[in-house]
Write a protein that binds this DNA or RNA. Structure first.
Lengths: 243, 243
DNA sequence: CGAATAGTGTCTATAAGACATTATACT
DNA sequence: AGTATAATGTCTTATAGACACTATTCG
């Protein structure tokens, strides 16, 4: 169907980042206010073009994470979400974006990056139920990133990526509650996380002081895959009382 | 970091397809023997460049599915696997591939496509345990596609995409067994699929004749998400008797 | 001692795993 | 009748969900 002289059309490649973290027990995503032409002034996911033809896409994601969010990718969870390539997604031309999901523990205040006039952690609940408009197809990407995070919380140890090096059971429970949007029973949560081999490793005799009884500390265990899984309480998607 | 005149480097975009089907109760993938330069003569996933700057990536996957595998994408399950963009993955230059996973029911014999000197369904077991070399990073892509299929069999109705319009419980069980590589107990399988609301819809009084008692027929039900999930018997990954 | 938070047990319902028998068709 | 395959029940074990009390620290 193609002849000998046909050459495939070149495209430009960007990476976009869905960076999630917990701030005061609620889920936040890092957004930037665009400082340049397409969608200038609108909120968008941090990201940018690959730097040169030899830059690996994953490396580009790490670089953007550092440049735009001032986060060290070597200690962060970072995984690919997918490629977004609708032909009309960017007015500048054919630009395909490879999106990454990053999970950050702490709360380093964001810095405005190169192309951003502002960067800030926004509650995802506000972005969705409120009416924050996102540039390009970034709403879709954020949505997909959230669903991936929600899903991976069930059967992987991803939740620990939201926590620091060590954490308490209550902190871990807050992660599940914030990402899933459900309150969990602390007694059942306690029983379930303890029952998964390799999920959590107790840390010495140290305890974290609180207003009440000090809490035991844990760190992420060796197991990446949770069996049995931590299942989400209710529906995953819409209708299920039917049939 | 970039100055005003800097322009991002263009890349070329391909789509590659992991097409899975069942042939005589064992899992097969469609592979082509490359007929042109890079890795000529080696086995590879079907795929090709996007046709022009206005072609949507998903449409390109559908097109390749038709051109290279003679399959009608409108009735097939087709979903994105991810983007593969290691800088050295293709000797022709910077070529990023967006991989798709396709699930086909029937057994239409493949046709050699444009750039392929041969196309054939190969048992995936042979590709992995045997030593079929795959071109580019296609082994990785096939691996990822397989794992996605295995995983989605657990909590979605993807298994029905391997079957025709209507199917028997035994046929559906063969899908799970072939993809997971485990034999399942027919009695427990029967109980579990029946217990998931919306998974299967019985089809009239029709039965499929066999050598023994004729089997009831079902079609895929309305529910895409399986609750409770059909969980894989053993380990998902390596070590779990520890701790 | 009272307030605050952590840590744990028990009972019940639902789902999983192992296992054997009955049903319907064909020859 | 014999063979082949489908359909289904029961018992036991594991996990999930609901729920309430005890433990440790601080002021």
């Amino acid at each position: 169907m193609s002849n000998e002289t046909w050459r495939p059309p070149p495209v430009l490649l960007t990476v976009d980042l869905v960076i999630l973290t917990l701030r005061s027990s609620s889920l936040h995503a890092l957004l930037i206010k665009r400082g340049i032409y397409p969608h200038k002034g609108e909120w968008a996911l941090p990201g940018g073009f690959i730097a040169d033809s030899n830059e690996d896409i994953f490396d580009a994601a790490r670089r953007e994470l550092r440049e735009e969010a001032n986060l060290d990718a070597t200690v962060l969870h970072l995984e690919q979400l997918g490629a977004y390539g609708r032909p009309d997604r960017d007015p500048r031309g054919r630009i395909v974006s490879v999106a990454y999901l990053a999970i950050a523990p702490g709360l380093p205040e964001p810095e405005a990056g190169t192309d951003a006039s502002a960067a800030s952690w926004r509650p995802v609940e506000e972005v969705f139920s409120g009416h924050v408009r996102l540039a390009f197809d970034h709403r879709q990407i954020l949505d997909d990133g959230l669903e991936l995070a929600r899903s991976k919380l069930e059967h992987t140890s991803l939740a620990t990526a939201f926590c620091g090096e060590t954490f308490t059971l209550t902190e871990l429970q807050r992660v599940y509650e914030a990402v899933w949007g459900f309150e969990l029973d602390p007694r059942n949560f306690y029983r379930k996380v303890q029952a998964v081999p390799g999920f959590l490793t107790p840390v010495g005799p140290d305890r974290r002081p609180t207003k009440g009884r000090p809490a035991r500390l844990f760190r992420a265990g060796p197991e990446q895959v949770l069996r049995p899984p931590m299942m989400r309480p209710v529906p995953r998607t819409g209708n299920e009382k039917e049939r």
